[in-house]
């Protein structure tokens, strides 16, 4: 079952939709919905980030910056300039995509981990700007965001948002799976294998890496916008370097080059701290130990390792 989950595109997507549809049976209060929504939002970012890290072989240490751009873009355009929320979401996402293109285009022509350094700098600049431009962003104390209203209908309450985020996650996974199976996706996988070989076969490395980078930025910005509307209040912490690291950790833990791995990674790393609060002072130690053990014994991440093990047993 897990093996099919990780491989067959339709089967996996159907399983995800089924999980999203059936999960409310197990969610008994708004707190449970809240955790499920945060898992969904993180998973959207991770599915995008996985395209970049898992398929294009580039690391981004600044994806929280795009997330923050989406969140603050939507917040500022709606609250300060009175834009309709849907337009603000599209505009701030387009802004993040444009920035990703401008940063990625010159850098991705180079080989090696230059993108990691550039995104690191970019993410830090974004979080500093958000924290210091307090007249527009509210500074370190954060700012309130008006709820998402479209055609006179306001999205409010955890139960409504659960279905919105669930649908958005399914859409993100569907887009990601399609992209991977498209010619662009095959080109990306070829690049990850051997850049020289791919070039000989006529693949332009820079073009496809930029494509993956821009798409991942779009996913992050959309998730950021949705977070702002859902939470109703945002602070610069979500654009910080630490949050970038958290996102990369989710992708790596779930399994590189596995879309469902990214979803599982986000789910595990979001729910684990909630479960571990029972341990009080030992929470952080156990959390770190779980991550270390996973990386030592499952170096390729949760989903690929388990899927392989199952496939081997069946043979």
């Amino acid at each position: 079952m897990l093996a099919r989950l990780a491989r067959a595109r339709t089967g996996g997507l159907a399983a995800l939709v089924a999980v999203v549809a059936l999960l409310p049976l197990a969610l008994t209060n708004n707190y449970h919905y809240e955790v499920a929504i945060v898992v969904g939002l993180n998973a959207i970012v991770c599915v995008g980030l996985n395209l970049l890290i898992g398929y294009a072989g580039q690391i981004s240490l600044g994806h929280a910056g795009f997330y923050g751009l989406g969140a603050y873009g939507s917040a500022i355009l709606t609250v300060r300039y009175g834009w309709p929320p849907a337009a603000a979401l599209v505009a701030s996402t387009a802004g993040a995509a444009a920035l990703a293109y401008l940063v990625g285009r010159p850098i991705l022509k180079l080989r090696g981990h230059y993108l990691a350094m550039a995104t690191l700098g970019m993410g830090i600049i974004i979080s500093i700007v958000i924290a210091t431009e307090d007249r527009v962003t509210g500074g370190p104390d954060g700012m309130a965001v008006a709820p998402f209203a479209v055609l006179g209908f306001t999205l409010a309450g955890e139960r409504v948002w659960y279905w919105v985020i669930g649908a958005a996650l399914a859409l993100a996974v569907w887009l990601s799976l399609n992209l991977i199976d498209s010619p662009a996706g095959r080109a990306l996988r070829a690049l990850h294998g051997s850049e020289v070989a791919a070039q000989v076969a006529g693949v332009d490395p820079a073009r496809y890496k930029v494509l993956a980078f821009v798409i991942s930025a779009v996913f992050a910005a959309v998730a950021g916008s949705l977070t702002a509307y859902y939470a109703g209040f945002i602070t610069p912490a979500k654009a910080s370097f630490l949050h970038s690291i958290e996102l990369v950790t989710m992708v790596v833990l779930g399994g590189l080059a596995s879309t469902f791995g990214a979803v599982i990674g986000a789910a595990v790393l979001t729910t684990l701290p909630q479960v571990l609060t029972l341990l009080k002072d030992y929470e952080m130690m156990v959390f770190g130990a779980v991550l270390m053990l996973c990386m030592i014994y499952l170096p390729r991440g949760l989903v690929p390792t388990i899927a392989d093990a199952l496939a081997r047993r069946r043979r």
Binding site: N30, Y31, E34, V35, V38, G142, T227, A231, F233, I234, T235, A237, K238, Q274
Partner: peptide, 11 residues
């Protein structure tokens, strides 16, 4: 973290 604060407050 304001987001964690929100989740814990709901809890």
């Amino acid at each position: 973290d304001a987001e964690k604060a929100r989740t814990f407050a709901k809890r």
